[in-house]
């Protein structure tokens, strides 16, 4: 009997050790001989590799007070849009995604107003915030930005602008600042899927990336007549 005790203790010790390490390094445990990868669908295997096999450092804390695991878990909108594999959302899928997005929008108290366009410009230029991993953005040092220039043209004098999104040069000049336009612009930043289902643009409000105030400041940069975007 006693000879069976030793491996039992050893196995327990290994388990305790891996728990103590918090799964910091479990690559050795993820080899294909334990589970049959070929018996899973591609979707199941992708999820298995990310979560069960710990393909990411899942337990690392994030700036919003959660974990990397939570970042990687998909919500319904992300899952629905991923399944399209880059194709446009059409028909029922489009309707569903738009409804889902609209439900997730909250508005500031009172009316939607423009904030400070100068503050908004800083936010539009800054790509800081929410990065976690080999380097982690410290939000106590600097506030996160909206990184609008990564994808959009805004101030015509800025030449280093991205083109994944449409040009927003002269946005406010062309559209004005009537209440309906303020509401539309707010929604486009807060949850753009309400208007463009499965757009590539992030849900800056719904995902908690930008605050109501920051959205108001960015709206001012895009819409205010004094902003260089509209000069």
């Amino acid at each position: 009997m006693s000879c069976y005790k030793i491996p039992k203790v050893a196995a327990f010790a290994t388990l305790a050790l891996s728990l103590a390490l918090g799964g910091a390094n479990t690559v050795a445990e993820t080899s294909a001989d334990k589970v049959d990868y070929t018996a899973m669908s591609a979707e199941q295997l992708a999820d298995y590799l990310i979560f069960d096999a710990r393909g990411f450092k899942l337990d690392v804390a994030t700036q919003e007070g959660g974990t990397v695991r939570q970042r990687l878990e998909q919500d319904e909108l992300q899952r629905t849009c991923s399944a399209l594999q880059g194709a446009r959302a059409e028909g029922d899928t489009a309707t569903q995604v738009m409804a889902m997005a609209r439900k997730a929008i909250t508005y500031p108290e009172g009316e939607i107003k423009l904030g400070d366009w100068k503050k908004g410009e800083e936010l539009a230029r800054s790509g800081f915030g929410f990065r976690v991993g080999h380097n982690t953005d410290d939000h106590s040092e600097r506030e996160p930005g909206g990184n609008c220039y990564a994808c959009h043209q805004l101030d015509p004098d800025e030449i280093a602008y991205g083109t994944l999104g449409p040009s927003l040069k002269g946005y406010g000049k062309a559209r004005g600042t009537a209440e309906a336009m303020l509401k539309y612009t707010y929604e486009m930043i807060y949850n753009p899927h309400a208007w463009f289902p499965c757009t590539k643009m992030p849900r800056f409000g719904a995902n908690g990336f930008l605050t109501h105030q920051q959205i108001a400041d960015i709206m001012a940069y895009v819409m205010h007549p004094e902003s260089p975007v509209n000069k």
């Binding site: 990868y37 591609a42 295997l45 992708a46 990687l72 909108l77």
Partner: peptide
């Protein structure tokens, strides 16, 4: 083939704070 196909899913898998 299984790994390639799982990689295909990962390529299109939107997640995180920016939905990318």
């Amino acid at each position: 083939k299984a790994m390639r196909d799982a990689g295909n899913v990962m390529f299109y898998r939107r997640a995180g704070s920016l939905d990318f």
